[in-house]
């Protein structure tokens, strides 16, 4: 249902992605690992539609539809979600106001798609508040969180939890988590992982971008991919992550070079 084919992308005339192929089906959790600078975060940003990147070749099909010409908000409304590695601060905008608008837009778009020609059921403010409180409890977030300004003064752990809260509320069908484990202590990692595990379901595809095996002890992937120099160079089952942890990227790079 989510199919990346021969994806090339550049930023300011420097090619970062050099032909990425990756297919993710509903209900599957994929881990994408790779050294710094291999293009993992670029891939995440290109999927979400970051305007700084130019796609020069290839396609991304989501349920058969090419999303590359779509605005980031149209992609979000189709069910694509990116949990950012470094979420941006928006001063003066409360979490609750931001979430209400995001959830309203995404859920109403979905309701309209599902209703077809019929009447779409829209979410009421009351339903939204109830839902937000429920999801915050799951992620061990204090209610006062809703009144704070978006990512302003958040600790590393709070930022990541806020991202997972957004995922929980938007209920994506394709979720990309970009280094959601970075900067988390072991307790925060457990809370965030539990959150993701609780959300992952048969209808959702998940792409976990991570540097380390550590996260994969908490969230079990079905498939593991290694990315190097703008391409997916190796794919396998969970054992690939262990192999990588044992060998390190350098050795793997040499092996890849030898077989190329």
């Amino acid at each position: 249902m989510f199919e990346i084919t021969n994806l090339h992308a550049s930023i300011e005339d420097t090619e970062i992605l050099k032909g990425v192929d990756l297919t993710i089906h509903k209900g599957e959790i994929h881990a994408l690992m790779g050294p710094n600078g291999s293009g993992k975060s670029t891939l995440a940003n290109v999927i979400a539609g970051h305007p700084a990147y130019e796609v020069t070749e290839g396609t991304i099909l989501f349920n058969g539809e090419d999303i590359l010409e779509m605005e980031p908000d149209e992609r979000a409304q189709l069910g694509i979600f990116l949990a950012f590695q470094y979420p941006t601060v928006i001063p003066g905008v409360s979490m609750a106001n931001f979430l209400r608008m995001a959830v309203t837009n995404v859920r109403n778009a979905r309701a309209e798609r599902e209703a077809g020609d019929g009447e779409a059921k829209k979410m009421t403010p009351r339903e939204f508040r109830k839902l937000m409180r429920e999801k915050m409890q799951v992620l061990h977030m204090d209610e006062s969180f809703a009144t704070r300004y978006l990512n302003e003064g958040f600790s590393g752990g709070e930022k990541k939890r806020a991202e997972i809260l957004q995922m929980a509320l938007l209920e994506p069908t394709m979720a990309i988590l970009d280094e959601t484990d970075s900067g988390l202590d072991i307790d925060a990692l457990r809370v965030v992982s539990e959150g993701v595990n609780a959300l992952a379901n048969d209808e959702m595809g998940v792409l976990l971008i991570t540097h380390y095996q550590r996260l994969l002890n908490h969230i079990k992937p079905h498939f593991v991919h290694i990315m190097m120099d703008g391409r997916v160079v190796q794919s396998g089952g969970p054992e690939l992550a262990h192999e990588l942890e044992a060998k390190g990227y350098e050795k793997l790079r040499a092996e890849v070079a030898a077989t190329a």
């Binding site: 979400a48 539609g49 970051h50 305007p51 700084a52 605005e71 980031p72 908000d73 992609r75 979000a76 409304q77 979600f81 990116l82 950012f84 979420p87 941006t88 928006i90 931001f98 608008m101 995001a102 837009n105 995404v106 778009a109 957004q166 938007l170």
Partner: peptide
Amino acid sequence: AEEQIFYLQSRGLSE
């Protein structure tokens, strides 16, 4: 910042 607009758009808000 472009990053702020992108962040909010990626959550379903129009530009």
